[in-house]
């Protein structure tokens, strides 16, 4: 019953933020004008604003957040680290290097290949991390420190790559600090193609990821191969994280906060952790984007900045509780 109420609650909060995203913005249109833009099918400016700018942005920020939340849950499950986050640990940074190269004109691909390239670059970093976790002496805290170093390194390389080309500052900022200003329906389709199958696979396998939390020796004694299952979980996390950076740039802390919030609200059951982290990731990112859009409107903040304001104190709290 409590679970049911929580999910309904998430749904209503998301709807509320979506309405805010739909009806508030820099165009100063009245509610009735916007409402008619939503329904009417002529090609007026209001219809353009609603259907080509605001609605895609709401959906894309939601889906990107879903990817980040699920990716964070997978990383925390398989690394046993409470501060696991795809962008903090450099997995998203892999995709940002690739995208930087593409923005800077170092290589020219069409959109399909840019999307695929982002995913593959993140996948590579996630498999490197998975390999690191498998080495025996790496405690969760050591792993976190190495992950953060890897994260900083990837962002630096990405920034270095991007400064080769003459790129608009807005594009650079959008990549390293996150932005949904260039949302469109194509990106939504790309994200759905990734998110739906990965979510299904994670659901099916989620029970197998749980024993990994006890460490490699004990999960072996429960008949679960820790290395293989961790490779699977980290690959899924890498794919999701690459897709999220392609859609919205590097948005920090959503992947860290969503699973923790989910444990607090829904508990630790595998299927609720997976579903809840996905939904809460979406909710947090949608909220961060609305904050970024409206806080100092018409000037927009990077969405990663808004999510960091929420996430950084949470990480400090978690670090405080570490032993």
């Amino acid at each position: 019953m409590r679970l049911f109420v929580s999910y309904i609650g998430f749904f209503f909060i998301i709807c509320m933020f979506a309405l805010v995203g739909l009806f508030y913005g820099p165009s100063d249109a009245s509610l009735s004008e916007l409402a008619s833009g939503l329904i009417r099918s002529d090609d007026g400016p209001m219809e353009m604003i609603i259907w080509s700018i605001r609605i895609p942005r709401i959906i894309l920020s939601l889906l990107t957040g879903c990817c980040l939340g699920l990716s964070g849950a997978l990383i925390q499950l398989s690394s046993r680290s409470s501060i696991g986050d795809p962008n903090l640990f450099g997995i998203g940074g892999g995709a940002s290097i690739f995208l930087a190269g593409s923005y800077a004109g170092i290589f020219v691909f069409n959109e399909h290949w840019i999307f695929l390239g982002s995913i593959i670059s993140s996948l590579i970093i996630s498999l490197i991390l998975s390999r690191l976790i498998a080495s025996k002496d790496l405690t969760p805290i050591k792993l976190a420190i190495m992950g953060i170093a890897l994260g900083t390194l990837t962002v630096s390389i990405g920034t270095a790559v991007i400064s080769f080309g003459r790129v608009f500052p807005g594009q650079v900022l959008g990549l390293v600090a996150g932005s949904f200003t260039s949302s469109n329906w194509d990106k939504i389709v790309y994200l759905l193609i990734i998110l739906i199958p990965v979510l299904l696979i994670t659901f099916i396998l989620s029970k197998r990821f749980y024993p990994i939390m006890l460490g490699d020796v004990l999960s072996k004694s429960l008949g679960v191969n820790p290395i293989r299952n961790r490779n699977i979980a980290m690959s899924l996390a890498g794919i999701l994280s690459g897709a999220s950076v392609y859609a919205g740039g590097l948005i920090g802390f959503v992947g860290l906060v969503a699973p923790h919030l989910c444990r607090k609200i829904l508990g630790n059951h595998p299927s609720h952790l997976i579903l809840g982290s996905t939904i809460l990731g979406g909710l947090l990112t949608l909220f961060s984007d609305q904050l970024a859009r409206l806080l100092f409107a018409p000037t927009e903040l990077p969405v990663g900045m808004a999510s960091t304001i929420l996430g950084a104190p949470m990480m400090m709290y978690l670090a405080w509780r570490l032993k």
Partner: peptide
């Protein structure tokens, strides 16, 4: 010396 499992009760 088993590490405490994170998150779990």
């Amino acid at each position: 010396n088993i590490d405490d499992p994170e998150f779990l009760s």
